[in-house]
Design a binder for these strands. Structure first.
Lengths: 149, 149
DNA sequence: ATGGTTGCAAACAATTTGCACCAAA
DNA sequence: TTTGGTGCAAATTGTTTGCAACCAT
């Protein structure tokens, strides 16, 4: 048995537990959705998700409904890469994205200093008292596209 | 003549110049769009924009086409406030947003230390060499909604 | 057993395209 | 004058809803 297969099974079991932990049923479609996002390791477009889940035998409608629920429960996050369509990735990934404005390539980066940013923002704010999530995306050019500008 | 009227005319003239400067025609619809975003002073939803522009006598299609062009030229920016629909605001506003996850209220904040964040990200990056735009949104709770949680 | 979940069909909403006419430069 | 912009209608794409059958617990 290949290592990747083992890992996948372990992941799936973990996701089943996570789902039950937030009070939701661990259905095959939901587990497959989380596994797909996990294995991708990067934000997946709606298109791609629908495609992969269709291959798995899941209806579009179920995908939409599952994504809503998972986002609501905070297990996944919507990402706006300015590619023209929504992307999703597993939540709790404390990294952010560099996005190429030309080719659309995405690279992660960490250590954006978001903690100090949050405290500064809250200190400055009149009405806000807590920050739970954040979106940080940087848009620019990768080497290749920079040259061809 | 009221001061606000004067300001509006001055703004319009400025926007006409800006449009020509990026090689585009200064049509009434485009100027009205930019003026609308300017006067709002906060990100406007697609809905709101379409509504206001319809009142101005502009077709939806023209609004979509203008928004695309203005975004392409870097005069406006798409903002994802996780309200379920796209928002736009004038570009070059070097502030970011605090968004309430419950009521959707938006507040600006400045001084997020984006410059040092950008240099850290670029230093860390294998492929990226330039950052031209960024999106920084913090999601949390305002006083009122925090109490009622 | 049973209440939440799914698939299908159909409604609904959002966005884009083709084309004739009009206007900014 | 000429090139690009606009409005209208219709196509296309994206997302949601209603309901009967199904399955995770």
């Amino acid at each position: 048995m290949k290592a990747s297969t083992t890992n996948k099974r372990v992941q799936e079991e973990r996701f089943r537990k996570t789902l039950r932990a937030v009070g939701e049923r661990a259905t095959p479609a939901r587990v497959a959705l989380l596994t797909t996002l996990e294995q991708a390791g990067r934000p997946l477009s709606m298109q791609t998700i629908l495609q992969q889940m269709k291959a798995f035998g899941t209806d579009q409608v179920t995908v939409y409904r599952s994504l809503h629920m998972l986002e609501q429960k905070g297990l996944i996050q919507r990402v706006d890469l300015r590619h023209g369509h929504t992307h999703f990735e597993l939540a709790a990934s404390d990294h952010h994205h560099l996005v190429c404005l030309t080719c659309g390539n995405v690279e992660d980066f960490t250590g954006c200093g978001v903690t100090s940013m949050v405290s500064r923002a809250l200190k400055q704010s009149k009405h806000f008292v807590e920050v739970k999530q954040y979106a940080v995306e940087l848009f620019g050019y990768c080497k290749r596209c920079y040259k061809n500008k």
